[in-house]
Nucleic acid binder design. Structure first.
Lengths: 113, 113
DNA sequence: TGACACTATGTCTGATATGACATAGTATTC
DNA sequence: GAATACTATGTCATATCAGACATAGTGTCA
């Protein structure tokens, strides 16, 4: 994956799902980014639902507030592994993750919700 | 994630799903490993279905045969990102990935106890 | 206003994953 | 057996990611 492309997307202020290949972004890249964004959103939701601050979550994860922020921001520097293991630590199940991944996709043929 | 634990598991010849916490393996770690194994299997299946050798797939991925082998072997040194983007390049959809992830899980939902 | 809690962003250093290469194992065919 | 194609495993240099820290932005409340 080329993180630089994603950075460009974000710099441009785009919600990735809506662009597809507005840049040189390959389909696979776009889908991967959408999956990550789905996980990001899921993480934030779950954290809030648990009534935790980023600092508190960071403690649970044995990480730092800045990393949590980046995770939730969909920063290119965070891996899927980190997102997933964080979600798991928050009690997400495989089914939850599967849903988050599919929720991250923007509809391949149509953009129907 | 602690890759060392997984290495130990594999060294012991275990299919991860069957052990849960036979080692100091946390629940979250176990689930993550199972998800990766699900993706590994899915990758091998998809490659074979496409009639590709590891070398050929490696070319498509702009990677190397050894890395493909490790991916399919569930080697601890391969990330979820790599597995997922490889699968996407082979034409898998988000839905396919979601299924592979859930397929990788062994038991009931981990949460309720 | 100031103080406070929360979140965002940039950067550093150490850890880990990556592709590449070598090499060994496994069939299969001649 | 030799030769071929495919796959597995180990190692290495480099690229990327991790946690940590500083610091800036945001919102709330007294």
């Amino acid at each position: 994956m080329k993180n630089t492309k994603r950075a460009k997307l974000e710099a441009a202020g785009w919600a990735v799902g809506s662009v597809k290949e507005f840049l040189g972004l390959s389909d696979a890249d776009a889908v991967l980014i959408n999956m990550k964004l789905g996980l990001s959103r899921s993480l934030r939701d779950r954290r809030k639902k648990c009534g935790l601050s980023q600092v508190q979550l960071a403690e649970q994860l044995q990480s730092s507030q800045s990393r949590v922020a980046k995770m939730e921001a969909g920063d290119p520097s965070v891996s899927m592994d980190l997102l997933v293991s964080s979600l798991l630590l928050l009690g997400a199940t495989s089914a939850d993750l599967a849903k988050a991944i599919r929720g991250g996709e923007k509809g391949k043929g149509r953009h129907a919700a």
